[in-house]
Design a protein around this nucleic acid. Structure first.
Lengths: 354, 354
DNA sequence: CTGTTAGCGCGTTCAC
DNA sequence: GTGAACGCGCTAACAG
C-alpha cells in the first residue's frame, strides 16, 4: 500500500534499488525475477515479495536491448476497407482473440500503421526492426499490398488470417471456406431445393474462390445442375447482392434458393425478394456467410455459415509461435495452412418450407 | 536496392556502421537523423541518403532507454462486453481513428490487455511503467473497472472515449449525447408525432443518462407530456428493446413514435411493431442511436443518431496530446470534456407519414 | 548459490 | 561543426 502511493506519485523502483533493499546484487534480483534455477528458494521468495511490495516493474526497453528480443508481436490489419468506409465486421472479434491468446503466451502487442501512400514499401519491415518485433500477425489484408509483400518476403515470421501472401516464414490461417459453402448447399438441398444459385465475392480473393469451389463441389456431389447464369459475381457488399439477386430472379428458371458468399449480399438478396413480392423462406431461401451482427437482426433472420473468430485468432497465434520456436532454419512450415471449421447457423431465411 | 537485399537476409545496420560508412562519428549521425541544428546541411543530407540506402532503422528500445521517453501510447478497450459475446460496433471505428491520428503525431501504439481477474488492480499502471508509455487511451470501458480506476487515479495521462472515470490527468471525450437525443425528438415532432416514448440504456452509464436527459429536455421545450410509463429502461441489446416496445404498445395511450437510445433496441422495437401488425413508419416511427452497420441493412432502414467515430478518435488523441504537452503540473485540464456533435440520419423508419 | 563486470544501441554531455 | 566518453536499466558471462 505504501508502495502503491509511491508509484502513484510517479516514483518507480528499479532493479538497483530493489537489490539494495533486499541486500543482494542486481544480478541475483534479475535471476530471481526471471525464474533462473540458480537462486535459492528463500532469496527468490524474499525478492519476489519485496518487488511486489515496492511496485517494481521491469523496464522492457532495457530488457529488450540487452536480451535482443522484445517478446512483442506486431499487428497489421487492412486499412483499405476502412478507407472506403467499410469495416470488416470480423476484425474486432479477431483482434480480441489475438490479443487474448498473445497475452496468455506473454507477448506484448504493438499496432502497426499502414504507411502513407508514398514509396514506403519497406515500412512494415522497418517497424519490425525498429521495435525488435518477433513476428507479425496480419488480419484480412488484401494480398496485393506492396508493403505487406515486402514484409512477407523477408524472414520475419508472419501469420495471416484470410490473406493470400506467402513468404519464407509465413503461415496462413483461414476458415474452411469450401466446407462451409458445401454445408450451406447441403442444407438447402435437404430442405428440398434443387435450383440453388450462388452470389460470389470477388473471385481473385482466396475466400471468395474457395466458397465458390465448395458450392460447385456440393452441387456436383448432389447431382445438381449449375447453369452458368446461376453463378454471379459480387463484391461482398449489399448493393452487389441486390443486383445479383435481381438478375437471378429474372431468369426463365429462377432459383428457389440462393447461397451468397457474404451476409451483406445475402441480405441484399432478401431485400430484392421482398420487393418482388416473394416470401423468404417460402418462395426463396437464402443462406449467407460470415454471421455479421446484422444477420441476427434482420427479418427474417439470416441463415449463415459462421466463422469462428476466436479459433481463427488463436490459431494464428499458435501458428506464429510455431514459426518463432522453429527458428529461421525451418522454412518447411510455410506451406502448412491452418483451416478452421465453420458452423452453419440455421435461422429464419431457410426454415423448412411448410 | 542493395540495402533492401541486405535487410531481407536479416542484416541490419546500426548507427555505428552508418557512422563508419559516412565517415563521421555516431554523434553526428544521431544529430543529423534527429534534426539537430548543429549539423552542416551537407553532412546531414549525406547521412540521410546513406541511411535510407542502407535501410537504417533506429533501435527504439535503445532510444527509449536513453531518452527516457518511448513516444508510445497504450490502448485499452472494454473486454467486459466481449466476454458476454457482445461487441461494441463502434470500437473498430474508434480504433482506426485513434491509430491513424496517433501515427500522424508520430506515436506508437501498444495494445494493453485486461488482466486476469486476480488482484491485479495495478496492472495497467504496471504496463505503463514497463513500457514507458506516455499515456493511455481508453475506449468505452465501464467506469467500475477497478484496474482502470487505479490507472486513472495515477498521474498517467489518460484520454477516455465514452468512459466515466476521472483522475488527476484525465480527459473524457464523448458524443453530444444530449443534443443527439434532442435532435431525434425534434425530428419526430416535426413529423407530427406528439406521443413520443423512449427506451433508455442502463442509466448508470453516462451516455445512457445523457440521452435520456436530452429526450426530456426536448419534450419539455416542445411542450410534450412525458408520462412515466413512456420512459423504459433497457440495456442497449435487442431483447430489451423488444420487451420495452411491447410494454409501450400495450399502453392505453401507446406512443406513435419511439426514440431508442441504441440501434439494437430500436430494431427490437421494429420487430415488435411488425409482429403486432403495425407498419413502420406509418403506425409507429422509430429512431435509434449509434448507426451500427445493421441499421442500414434492416427494413425499413433505421433512422438514427450517428456518432462520428473518426472525430471521437481524433479528439481523444488531441486531448491526450494536450495533457502530454501540459506536463504533470497542469491538472486544470482534467475537467474539460470534449464533446463531439452527432448527425441525424433520416431513413425509412421515420419517413414522413403519407 | 551469489557478486562483479561488461556491454546491448543510442542520445547527450563535454571537449575541441 | 564535430568527436570521445559516458550512461540509460538490464541481462549474461565469468568468477568465486
Amino acid at each position: 500500500m505504501y508502495a502503491m502511493s509511491l508509484a502513484q506519485i510517479g516514483y518507480f523502483v528499479n532493479i538497483r534499488e530493489l537489490a539494495r533493499a533486499s541486500g543482494v546484487s542486481t544480478a541475483t534480483v534479475s535471476r530471481a525475477l526471471n525464474d533462473r534455477a540458480e537462486v535459492s528458494e528463500a532469496t527468490r521468495e524474499r525478492i519476489r515479495r519485496l518487488a511486489t511490495e515496492l511496485g517494481y516493474a521491469p523496464n522492457e526497453p532495457a530488457r529488450t536491448l540487452v536480451r535482443r528480443r522484445s517478446d512483442t508481436i506486431g499487428l497489421i490489419w487492412d486499412s483499405g476497407q476502412e478507407a472506403r468506409g467499410q469495416h470488416n465486421p470480423f476484425l474486432l472479434g479477431l483482434l480480441s482473440a489475438v490479443r487474448t491468446a498473445l497475452s496468455e503466451a506473454d507477448y506484448h502487442l504493438m499496432l502497426l500503421t499502414t504507411p502513407a501512400a508514398e514509396e514506403a514499401d519497406g515500412s512494415y519491415l522497418q517497424a519490425v526492426r525498429r521495435h525488435n518485433l518477433e513476428g507479425v500477425i496480419v488480419l484480412t489484408t488484401p494480398p496485393d499490398d506492396r508493403c505487406l509483400r515486402v514484409l512477407a518476403a523477408s524472414n520475419v515470421p508472419c501469420a495471416g488470417i484470410d490473406t493470400g501472401f506467402t513468404g519464407p516464414r509465413t503461415v496462413r490461417v483461414s476458415s474452411d471456406n469450401a466446407a462451409g459453402a458445401e454445408a450451406a448447399v447441403d442444407h438447402l438441398y435437404g430442405l428440398g431445393h434443387r435450383r440453388i444459385a450462388t452470389v460470389t465475392g470477388p473471385l481473385h480473393l482466396p475466400p471468395a474462390a474457395e466458397r465458390l469451389a465448395g458450392y460447385r463441389r456440393a452441387c456436383e456431389r448432389l447431382g445438381l445442375a449449375v447453369p452458368p447464369e446461376y453463378v454471379t459475381e459480387g463484391d461482398f457488399f449489399l448493393a452487389s447482392g441486390e443486383t445479383a439477386a435481381r438478375k437471378l430472379l429474372d431468369l426463365a428458371q429462377p432459383p428457389t434458393a440462393i447461397f451468397a458468399a457474404g451476409d451483406q449480399m445475402a441480405i441484399g438478396a432478401m431485400h430484392v425478394a421482398a420487393d418482388a413480392g416473394l416470401s423468404v423462406p417460402r418462395d426463396l431461401a437464402v443462406v449467407g456467410f460470415d454471421d455479421i451482427d446484422a444477420s441476427a437482426l434482420v427479418r427474417p433472420s439470416l441463415t449463415t455459415v459462421a466463422q469462428d473468430q476466436r479459433a481463427l485468432g488463436e490459431a494464428a497465434v499458435t501458428a506464429l509461435r510455431g514459426l518463432l520456436d522453429a527458428g529461421p532454419g525451418k522454412t518447411k512450415l510455410e506451406a502448412e495452412p491452418r483451416i478452421i471449421p465453420t458452423r452453419l447457423l440455421v435461422r429464419g431465411s431457410s426454415r423448412p418450407r411448410a
